[in-house]
Structures are given as structure tokens and as C-alpha cells.
Lab assay of single mutants.
Amino acid sequence: KRYRAVYDYSAADEDEVSFQDGDTIVNVQQIDDGWMYGTVERTGDTGMLPANYVEAI
């Protein structure tokens, strides 16, 4: 699945990823209600991200 960031996010922990509004997130997997795991296409960084900061595309 592919998602697009709708807000900027700065990683708060080493297992999270930072991204900017408009970034595409690929290979996304749902972890639980609030978190997903995926790769930021622009940077190649992979990690956890907050589900409410992205939307499906």
C-alpha cells in the first residue's frame, strides 16, 4: 500500500521515521490503531510512523 504524508513528522524515537508533508510512504503495514510501518520513498528511511499523519493514495 502507498500513503501520502499530510503533515510533517519528526521521529521521536530511533525506530520511527521522519517525513514531510507530501512525501510518499511505501510498503506500509498497519501495526495497531495508531501506528504503521513503512518506507519514506524520498529518503529511503524505514520505520514506524503515526497513522493519523498519512492518507491512502
Rank of each mutant, 00 (worst) to 15 (best):
G47E: 01
W35K: 06
R2Y: 09
D15S: 15
E55D: 07
F19P: 01
P50F: 05
V17P: 02
G22K: 05
M36E: 01
Y37V: 10
Y7F: 12
D32I: 13
V17H: 00
R4P: 00
D8L: 07
W35Y: 07
I57V: 10
V40D: 01
A51Q: 07
Q20A: 09
V40K: 00
V26N: 07
D32S: 15
A56H: 10
D15G: 15
T43G: 03
E14M: 11
M48Y: 14
N27K: 08
Q30K: 12
R4V: 09
D33F: 10
L49P: 01
A51K: 09
A12D: 08
E41H: 06
S10Y: 13
D32E: 10
T46D: 04
G47R: 00
N27F: 10
A5F: 03
I57S: 06
D23W: 07
I57Y: 10
Q29L: 13
L49G: 01
I31A: 08
N52E: 12
A51Y: 08
V54W: 02
G34Q: 14
A5M: 00
T24G: 05
T39G: 02
A11I: 03
N52D: 11
D32C: 14
R2P: 06
A12P: 05
G34P: 03
S10R: 11
E16L: 05
K1E: 09
G22A: 04
V28P: 05
W35R: 08
T24A: 09
V6T: 09
P50M: 08
D8K: 10
A11N: 04
E41K: 07
Q29G: 07
K1A: 12
S18C: 05
A56M: 14
R4Q: 07
D21Q: 15
D8C: 13
G34A: 14
N27I: 13
L49F: 15
I25T: 02
D15H: 14
D33G: 11
I57W: 11
Y53Q: 05
G38A: 05
T46Y: 08
D32G: 13
N27E: 09
A5Q: 01
N52Y: 10
V6Q: 07
G38D: 01
Q30V: 13
L49A: 04
R2F: 08
V26L: 11
D15I: 11
R42L: 04
G34I: 14
D8S: 15
V54K: 01
Y37A: 05
I57C: 10
E14G: 11
Q20D: 07
T43E: 02
R4G: 03
G38K: 01
Q29Y: 14
G22F: 04
D33C: 13
D15V: 10
V26Y: 10
E14Y: 10
G38S: 00
Q29D: 08
Y9I: 01
G34R: 14
V54A: 05
A5C: 08
Q30G: 08
A51N: 06
I57A: 07
N27R: 09
V28C: 12
M48S: 06
D33V: 10
Y7Q: 14
V6E: 03
Q20N: 11
D45W: 06
V17E: 01
V6P: 00
V17F: 05
S18Q: 03
V6F: 08
G22P: 02
D13F: 12
D13T: 15
Y53L: 12
E55S: 09
V26Q: 06
K1S: 11
N27A: 09
L49D: 01
R4K: 09
R4C: 08
N52H: 13
E14L: 11
